[in-house]
Design a protein around this nucleic acid. Structure first.
Length: 302
RNA sequence: GGUUCCAUGUCCGAGUGGUUAGGUACCGGUCUGCAAAACCGUUUACACCAGUUCGAAUCUGGUUGGAACCU
């Protein structure tokens, strides 16, 4: 897909700490807005590399649902942090920050500029200003905490958090158990309160960052989403989904386009409904990306 | 032409005289780690006209539209 005249490119400069020390151009926008096409076009004309900032394209084995660049495009432009992990592997915004910065530094040393392209807003923000250095939770603690929560329930988890970190308990959304449990994991791993580790401090990079956001009338964006889903189906989405169906519980597969296919395979949804749901959920995803960016703009400019 | 039934928000659907059911869609929002995740919120009605009543989505009459059956 290409960027058309109906798309509007918004640019925002985040100056680095050391002027003249290079630049990262971050291309982002809602899903199906044409980020990849724009990035590849820029990369080819300027001889740049692209760092992928899509939380699912990091994995190997699901190129169709994630709308990964084609083999030809990958051959034409060097891509980083893409198609590199088994579906079972853990990955996170924090790891992305570290990995992406390492590539960015080496590319900026090489030619002065690097491109970052992707729609995972949390990854984009992690690259632009970093996130706190929390300890990584060992699998054993992650599993034990999850098991405790399953065994004792929400009320127990909330009480436990209130006992161990009353400050965070006061601000966390008590309906969002995923965050409650995560805080417990961090507390158990670090021995410190989550509050004390969550500084919210934003780091400034040495290099300049130019943030490019692709804006498009919603009706047009939604039309492109529908067309993209149809194209994925034509490209073999069903086969791809079947090939990973046995591992459907993995987080990397908790992805729009796969979970609906799995529901069809399970028999809990018919094929036509599944396809409609993929389109709908992709629209919802796009809206959440837009909301995220709106808030980002407010915090950066207002 | 006749008889019967039906008419609720984007859609589904409850509600037979007096606190805006509920779901879904749309829209909006939260956000420091699996984020394409997880979570939250708001809005949109009672086909139309007249009547009864303190008060009508709810009762009565008519109009319009639809469905089934009969001729």
């Amino acid at each position: 897909m290409s960027v058309t005249s109906q798309a509007e490119i918004q640019r925002l400069l985040l100056p680095g700490a050391r002027p003249g020390s290079g630049k990262a151009t971050v291309i982002t926008g809602p899903t199906a807005s044409g980020k990849s096409a724009l990035a590849i076009d820029m990369a080819m004309r300027r001889g740049l590399h692209i760092i992928n900032a899509d939380s699912r394209q990091v994995y190997h084995g699901i190129p169709i649902v994630t709308a990964m660049p084609t083999v030809g495009e990958l051959a034409a432009v060097p891509h980083h942090i893409i198609d590199m992990l088994p579906l079972e592997a853990y990955y996170s915004a924090a790891r992305f920050e570290a990995d992406a910065l390492q590539v960015a530094r080496s590319e900026i040393d090489r030619c002065g500029e690097v491109l970052v392209c992707g729609g995972s807003m949390m990854y984009v923000d992690a690259f632009c200003h970093g996130i706190d250095d929390l300890p990584e939770v060992p699998d054993a603690i992650r599993e034990a905490t999850y098991a405790d929560w399953q065994l004792h329930g929400d009320a127990w988890a909330l009480d436990e958090l209130g006992r161990l970190d009353p400050e965070y308990r006061a601000v966390v959304d008590p309906a969002n158990m995923k965050r409650v449990v995560h805080a417990l994991e961090i507390i158990r791993t670090s021995g410190a309160t989550f509050t004390s580790l969550r500084t919210g401090r934003k780091r400034r990079r040495d290099f300049d960052i130019e943030l490019i956001w692709i804006e498009m009338p919603r009706e047009r964006l939604f039309g492109r989403i529908g067309a993209r889903v149809d194209a994925m189906l034509a490209a073999g989405l069903e086969e791809e989904a079947r090939s990973v169906y046995a591992r459907r519980g993995l987080n990397s597969l908790n992805t729009v386009g796969l979970k609906e296919m799995f529901a069809w395979f399970d028999g809990s949804m018919d094929r036509a409904t599944a396809i409609e749901r993929i389109k709908k959920n992709t629209r919802v995803y796009a809206k959440k990306q837009i909301t995220w960016h709106r808030r980002r703009l407010e915090s950066l400019t207002g």
